[in-house]
């Protein structure tokens, strides 16, 4: 029997905005198995990124439960969530979100340092080498192109060998060729570390590379298929 690594039960997310309360996610129930690659697809505003944030504990469910690696994320405090991410998760964003005051090497080493790794910098170097950025290690984010910044972000997410890799439209800000290279790297990292990958994307060809595709419509799951069926 395959181990469930992520599990959501009737999870909802509502946020208070200027225009009143908005229901972002409604009654999401979902299990993801260890080692699985899952594509989250759907139109803009359907709640894909919000669902990913719930899975990463970056957003707290309004009702229902979110369980990751046996931990109920809705019951954990901010710091406990941070420790869980530190030890088990890597997150990649569309806008890279590198720390502007740190070099590429420092950015990649930071999660390893936070985890208390003695060889943080050596591992960060190796990880940057793996994404082809050894020569740019001491550059600041502002000194790099978008594709390079996203490669640093990938290296940073993958460096701690996370059980779960969460990627929010990682190629959304990149041109086609660069995006393709990034995706190759992402899947390569996933294969190398055996992580579970949850990927938010608008691109059908990327979704097609996943084991399973989850479709969202107006904050709710609309259909669930195997990747083979999506093709």
């Amino acid at each position: 029997m395959t181990e469930t690594i992520l599990s959501l039960k009737d999870a909802t997310l509502s946020l208070d905005g200027n225009a009143g309360r908005v229901d972002i996610l409604r009654g999401i129930t979902l299990d993801i198995a260890r080692g699985e690659t899952v594509g989250l697809v759907g139109p803009s505003g359907s709640g894909k990124s919000s669902l990913l944030m719930l899975m990463g504990g970056l957003e707290r469910a309004t009702t229902g439960s979110v369980n990751a690696l046996g931990h109920d994320l809705t019951a954990l405090g901010e710091d406990a969530l941070a420790r869980l991410r530190r030890d088990h998760m890597g997150v990649v964003f569309q806008s890279f979100h590198l720390i502007p005051t740190m070099t590429a090497l420092e950015n990649v080493a930071t999660p390893l340092e936070l985890a208390g790794a003695k060889d943080a910098f050596d591992r960060a170097e190796a990880e940057l080498d793996a994404v082809g950025l050894r020569a740019r290690m001491n550059h600041y984010p502002a000194q790099m192109s978008g594709g390079e910044q996203q490669r640093v972000a990938l290296a940073r997410a993958a460096a701690p060998r996370p059980d779960i890799l969460l990627a929010d439209e990682p190629t959304g800000n990149l041109d086609g060729a660069t995006g393709q290279a990034i995706m190759d790297l992402l899947f390569g990292l996933r294969d190398r570390h055996g992580s579970t990958l949850v990927l938010v994307t608008h691109a059908p060809e990327l979704a097609a590379r996943c084991d399973r595709v989850i479709r969202l419509q107006d904050g709710a799951l609309s259909a669930e298929d195997h990747a083979e069926a999506a093709e």
Partner: peptide, 19 residues
């Protein structure tokens, strides 16, 4: 603004509020 952004990234990477 810069600190808020930095804190958000660091939390994502697993930094505690104390750190």
């Amino acid at each position: 603004r810069a600190r808020t952004y930095e804190a958000a990234i660091l939390k994502t990477l697993g930094a505690s509020r104390h750190t």
